[in-house]
Design a protein around this nucleic acid. Sequence first.
DNA 1: CTTAGGG
DNA 2: CCCTAAG
Length: 501
Amino acid sequence: MDHEAHSRNKFVNMKSQRVKVEGSFAPALEDETETIEHLLAEPKSEYVTVDGVLCCGKETAGKCVDIEDFSCGYDFGLNTYSGGLHSAHPRGRYDELEFGVLDGLLDEVDEVEDIHAINGLASPCDDYLLDIGFTGKASELGFGPREKSHLGNSSSESQSPRLSGSSNGAVGISESSTVTIQEFECKNNSVDKAVTHEFHGGFRRKKRRRIPVEGNVYPASINLQNLELDNDEKTLVKEIVSGENEKLSIEATKLGAFCKEKRLRKPTLRYIEEFSGKKSKDSNERENCSALTATQDRSKVRCQNEHHHMSPGILSSVPEEDSISENQTLAEFRTQRKLAKKHASILALESDEQPITSESEDDHVPKKRSRKHDRRKHQRMWTLSEVTTLVDGISEYGVGRWTDIKRVLFSSSAYRTPIDLRDKWRNLLRASCGKKMKKEVEQKEMRALPKSLVRRVRELATVHPYPRQRGKKFAPPILPTSSKSASSDLIRKYVRRKNRS
DNA sequence: CTTAGGG
DNA sequence: CCCTAAG
């Protein structure tokens, strides 16, 4: 019991881990149009996690990275794939990637854990030892037999990444409210690696963009195992994993007992399952506050769609204060969230937050992640594709209908709330108008955007009164006939919208 | 609850 | 991004 209580409190904690990236892989998907094949064909230097598997560009292969913001996937009910995008450091500092893991159910480990993902590849990371409970040995996890069989599978599959087929694991998770990660094997480098991750419920749920694949798509992965697994957990893992092929290759240096002691426990799988079983299917909206709490940032929680429930009991782990009743509704959930926020400070003590994950372009990741104090601002850089999508959405739906746009065009992006969209639009307007902005800043931003896009923004800007500029003085310098028509078209739409409302 | 605004 | 006031 104590343990339980303890874990509750810790539920929110995030953990940082140092992991080694195995092999090279597919880059993050930039937009929904991208396919895995594209990615494979033209790897970018980005990291992405899908179902817990971190994937990255070649540059990272063999390197050890710190992961601070790990997002895992649940089944959001929207897409099966889950996972989060993690920051990519354009500058190439992959070794400082941050990936965060909510410590949620996992126990909290305050310190950074070193995980040694195995890889046949390089092995440069000897320095990082595992002190994780997760022992590398599959056998310990109980995968033993299964593993073997799976291995067979994986190897066969390994040859080519599979796009979606599988799906397996991730989906199952949702029910149990546990996240699983899948593993896959890649033969790149002539090494086989398969990784499996298993997370316990409390992660921040984030969704990546739409990824065609459900689970294992990327050729390479990192093994982020969670460290602390107890028997129950092991069981859990086993279950989760089942169905998948996995091969764990992890090397544990010290673990076992040590870990156990250190890490306290988390809700057992069974527990989770029990709950999930009860309500899993029908209940759609409940969520575990744990997540919330953990996050205090709404971004994690934000997506409306992705409410995932965790079993209350487990999650309940969360703050007692915000305790969730068993059947919590979404509304309740939200409320809770609010409460959680309020108590965040309190919780903060136990959890360390590391908020941010920056996305692809984000470079300002501090070398040393400033942990505690930064107000977690998970700032996610807006990618070009996102901006484009946003602009498209605005032109389609009109300005102001952020939720619609979010739903339709950004449904797969867990982050990016309607408000975010609006804010982004606001910024675009400011930038495009060339108003007095701090020259460098926004202009720079604008520069990055394709002219065509900028032009569209401007056109829309003429129509839309955002920052209170009703009659914008700005007349697009270049307004080809086509754009003119487009503008009027937009205007019409806008008007219509207005009337409607 | 969703927007608009402001910080 | 976050928070708050309005509709």
